[in-house]
Computed example of a mutant assay.
Amino acid sequence: MNLTRNSKVIVQGVTEKISTQIALMMKSSGTNVVAIISPGEGGKEWDGIPVFSLVEQAVAKVGMIDASVIVMPAYQVLDAALEAIASGLKQIVIVTEGVPPLDMVKLLRKAEATETLIVGPSCAGIIVPDQFLLGTHSPQFYTPGKIGILSRSNTLTYEVAWELTKSKFGQSICVSLGCDPIVGSSFLQWLQILDEDERTELIVLVGGVSGVSEEVAASYISETIDKPVIAYIAGTYAPLNQNHSHGSYLISARVAGEIESKIAAFEAVKIPVAKCPSDIPSLVGNLLEKKCS
């Protein structure tokens, strides 16, 4: 990730209430929102932010753009993302949920070929407290500090950040990777980013029951990551073999023993696992104290 407070950011989405609210929330959080992209509505202005019909028109007007936040309808996300990539953008956050899996496969192939970082879909995006926001994180839960958060869940990202904030542990970078079955970037990519980030001293990883990304992350941490890591697995008490609507991918069709396998994977490489979000601050304090001693 190569973003600062001065990075130029656009919001791709029809100029309706939700996309305008997201753009204004990002701007009020310090993000340098230079344009809204809304096909057919170029030439307008929303609360001081110019509107363009195409990304290339925005680039021609304001210069090279660093990142885009996409809030288009699900079946328009692929075209919007490809348009951004064609205009040279290297970082894209997709807030929209329910993007067709085949569209995501096509997008990820293009992103890999162009070295573009994709976050989402169905995500709250990225926040660096008091610096900038790319997405829909609620800034009131965050405070600047040295703890990085990586999460598969949007709301759990907020909850963990708030628990840390209440305990006087600020955050460096907080990333919600997304809840759709196919998402752009992985725990491994972001673990590496946070491991190299000078502001981050400790990483909190929030996973779920379904999939194997947590076990893979545990192995990767033990072999590659130098900074201390704490894990929390959501869905421990979810009923077996039952889907859970919006959170279905995170904790769907839980199988007996699955949660124990994930916890065991972290414990096997001596990564502390919190039983609930409120336990995380005390684990953070313990690890930071050991690091300083």
Rank of each mutant, 00 (worst) to 15 (best):
Glu56Thr: 04
Ser29Leu: 08
Glu201Asp: 05
Val77Arg: 13
Met25Gly: 12
Glu215Ser: 12
Asp130Pro: 02
Lys106Trp: 10
Ser68Cys: 13
Leu134Glu: 08
Ile280Thr: 12
Val34Gly: 04
Ala67Asp: 11
Ala84Leu: 03
Ile49His: 04
Gln12Val: 02
Gly98Ser: 14
Ser222His: 04
Ser186Gly: 00
Gly207Asn: 10
Val255Trp: 03
Ala264Val: 03
Ile280Asn: 11
Leu156Glu: 14
Lys17Trp: 00
Pro121Phe: 07
Glu198Tyr: 06
Glu115Gln: 00
Ser19His: 09
Ala234Met: 09
Ile126His: 12
Tyr232Ser: 03
Asn32Cys: 06
Ser278Gln: 08
Leu287Phe: 04
Pro129Arg: 07
Tyr75His: 13
Ala253Ile: 07
Ala256Arg: 08
Ser172Phe: 06
Ile263His: 11
Pro228Gln: 07
Leu287Gln: 06
Ser213Gln: 14
Ser53Arg: 12
Ala23Trp: 05
Cys123Lys: 13
Ala256Tyr: 10
Ile36Asn: 15
Gln171Ile: 02
Leu288Ala: 10
Ile18Asp: 01
Lys290Arg: 14
Val175Cys: 11
Glu260Pro: 01
Ser29Val: 10
Gly211Thr: 10
Glu198Gly: 02
Leu3Arg: 14
Ile65Gly: 14
Met25Lys: 03
Ser293Lys: 15
His246Arg: 04
Ser245Pro: 06
Cys174Ile: 13
His244Asn: 07
Leu102Lys: 03
Ile233Met: 05
Leu202Ile: 01
Leu205Glu: 04
Gly178Arg: 02
Glu83Gln: 02
Ile127Gln: 13
Leu134Trp: 01
Val128Thr: 10
Ser153Asn: 15
Gly40Tyr: 10
Asn154Ile: 02
Leu82Asn: 04
Ala217Tyr: 09
Ser122Phe: 09
Met72Pro: 03
Gly148Asp: 08
Leu117Arg: 13
Ile118Lys: 07
Lys90His: 13
Ala23Pro: 12
Val209Pro: 06
Gly208Thr: 13
Asn6Gln: 05
Gly63Asp: 09
